[in-house]
Amino acid sequence: MKRIGLVPTTILVLGALYCLFPVSWVVVAATKTPGELFSTATFSFGSGLFSNLADLFAYRDGVFWLWMVNTLLYAGGGALLSTLVSAAAGFALAKYRFPGRNAIFNVLIGGILVPGVVLAMPQYLLFSKIGLADTYWSVLLPQILHPYSIYLARVYSQAAIPDSLLEAGRLDGASEWLLLRRVALPMMVPGLVTIFLFQFVAIWNNFLLPFIMLGDDGKFPLTVGLYTMLAAGANQPSLYNLIITGTLVALVPLIALFLTMQRYWRTDLSSGAVKS
């Protein structure tokens, strides 16, 4: 029986090492001075972490700070709005019977299948027409609607909110709006946290939309900022340290969020709701 345990353990540890390898390389490489990056052994720590960080945050008058704040704004604001919109829509689709319900659901969910660029390019042109291209709105607004979140919110309200509770509220004279705010939303919180996290990561990681929408580097999120650093510095090895350190700094908040919120990273919202 011991032999059985050895094979899966080895396979999984190999997989884990493969996944940790680039991240640990970036952690080590970010500590190296430009000279050390090309001379010292791959996994030996260098002596330049603090000068790299100082250089990074001084880069072009501290534009990197701005990119971090922008990213937080896009991901935080966008995920919050997206979660509320999805919750209301999911609740309506799960708990009401009304004409057009299935048609609306199918149309909304069909949005999953539309490739990003088919939307990003005309969105940019339409935003340009009303003078909103290259603004915060142009990155924030298109990312609020997220069909998969609506799907998850529907699955979750179906499983987490008993009809009897809504009926009881109606008998007490509560309005539908009050039922949504005071009964449905609080009961959906665990599922909404999951929806928020998935959407937060999706917006944080998005590259195509801000890349197309934005021209002013003061409004860039980290992904586009890092890319422009690479595009400018790929032929200048002296800039590599800056880019590597920037990559590490961009990773830290998400990895911290990932490790602390582990129990919310679930892909089985319906069964989770029944159990808890």
Partner: peptide
Amino acid sequence: SIFLPFAVPGVAAGLM
């Protein structure tokens, strides 16, 4: 560890 790359932006993965 295997799920960790999910939290890494595609741009950061490409850079690393």
